[in-house]
């Protein structure tokens, strides 16, 4: 349990650093560390497949692309748009309202007893595959169609308009 609290503290600590870091590239690097702590959380819950997929897909691919884009556009203080004080105050009030809503909503929940999982081995690749392809086949296939449509859309946006050429 103490491991969990330590890792949870690290997750929150790094995610705060993500939004307070001045340099966008530093912010992404903190985000990578945050995702790494998530991987440890998954391992603590014995969800091996989820852990390693989070590691490969989020840390290894998506954040590399984030970093790639940020390095290319090279954001820095000079090119950052100046925000007026009005916008800052509005942002602060909006954020505070959101925080109050979240806190109130969380308070309305009863603290549940600690979750008892029926099957500790659910996160192993074999069991996960069997469940995904039996019980949850339809949602699984539908989400794959969703991903496919996103891919087709991206290819369509990236290819040049044949009429314009």
């Amino acid at each position: 349990m103490s491991t969990f609290y330590f890792i949870a503290f690290l997750s929150i600590f790094f995610s705060i650093l993500v939004i307070t870091a001045r340099n966008p590239v530093h912010s992404i690097l903190y985000l990578i560390l945050t995702f790494f702590t998530f991987t440890i959380h998954y391992i603590l819950m014995n969800a091996q497949f989820l852990a390693i997929v989070n590691f490969i897909v989020y840390m290894g691919a998506i954040l590399v692309l984030f970093l790639y884009t940020l390095m290319l556009i090279n954001l820095n203080k000079e090119s950052e748009p100046r925000k007026s004080n009005l916008v800052k105050i509005a942002g602060f009030i909006g954020g505070a309202c959101f925080l109050i809503t979240i806190v109130a909503a969380l308070k309305a929940f009863k603290m549940s007893d600690s979750v008892v999982t029926q099957n500790n081995d659910l996160g192993l690749v074999k069991n996960l595959g069997k469940i995904l392809f039996n019980e949850f086949l339809l949602p699984f296939e539908i989400s794959s169609v969703l991903l496919l449509s996103a891919m087709v859309g991206a290819v369509l946006l990236a290819t040049k308009d044949p009429k314009a050429a």
């Binding site: 091996q48 497949f49 390693i52 997929v53 590691f55 490969i56 290894g60 970093l67 192993l124």
Partner: peptide
């Protein structure tokens, strides 16, 4: 570990950070 291949794969995908 049960997911040995995926571990190798994860380490490989992490390797690019040093260069970047």
């Amino acid at each position: 570990i049960n997911v040995g291949i995926l571990y190798i794969f994860g380490v490989v995908s992490l390797g690019v950070y040093g260069i970047m």
